[in-house]
Write a protein that binds this DNA or RNA. Structure first.
Length: 206
DNA sequence: GCCCAGGTGTTTC
DNA sequence: GAAACACATGGG
């Protein structure tokens, strides 16, 4: 049933090419990690401005984040909102990756979900976005859109907790990184077009 | 001016 | 536990 919805969305919207990256960081997966933190409860347009500021300042690596003055980091990411706490989160995250794994590459290869969730500022959705899109590990990313769309369809309950929804999707889909990556991207696309807070009558899933 | 956006951590019942 | 709140910018 879930796979059928996936195929319907894929047919409607095509491949989404997620996660969007410009590739200015080293490694390029690092941009996914910082984007995942910056986009917390924030429109992606605003995140792009913050990422562009980092790009223009040649802030390309975790080390660059660590070495940067806090006030400068706050200023650069200001367009993405919540800049005080996000600056702290970026620092904490970079410190964790480098301090515990030596390099971002090593971090990406060896990090576990359980460990990632212990980092301050990394909740379940951010952790799964990093695991799925930066590490290419099969964890399904659940966001507000996912809950809204699938509870409206009567497939899940609005009251389900994050882990419950994630496990539901993972248990009802082939354990396939490509599908998980594509599906989440399609859900975001679909939500923005046709499943906003006020439901669209022409929703293709109805 | 109001509402919303690819959440998370803390405080308070 | 779960509900309420703080965190902040920019676009519609």
């Amino acid at each position: 049933m879930i796979l059928k919805i996936y195929k319907k969305l894929l047919k409607e919207h095509g491949h989404r090419k997620w996660w969007p990256v410009s590739g200015f960081t080293e490694p390029k997966e690092w941009e996914i990690c910082i984007g995942a933190i910056l986009t917390q409860n924030t429109a992606w347009k605003n995140v792009e401005k913050a990422l562009r500021n980092l790009d223009e300042t040649s802030c390309r690596t975790a080390g660059d984040i660590l070495n940067m003055d806090m006030s400068k980091l706050r200023r650069l990411i200001k367009p993405s909102g919540f800049f005080n706490q996000k600056a702290k989160r970026l620092k904490a995250f970079a410190r964790y990756a480098i301090g515990n794994f030596g390099s971002v590459g090593n971090f990406l290869r060896n990090i576990t979900r359980e460990e990632l969730l212990k980092v301050n500022g990394i909740g379940p959705e951010t952790a799964d976005a990093i695991l799925l899109y930066a590490c290419s590990k099969p964890y399904f990313v659940v966001d507000a859109y996912t809950k809204r769309i699938f509870s409206r369809l009567g497939i899940i309950e609005q009251s389900w907790k994050y882990e419950q929804v994630r496990e539901f999707f993972e248990n009802n889909l082939p354990k396939d990184v490509q599908i998980y990556q594509e599906f989440h991207a399609l859900i975001v696309k679909h939500a923005k077009e046709c499943c906003k807070k006020v439901a669209n009558e022409n929703c293709i899933l109805k």
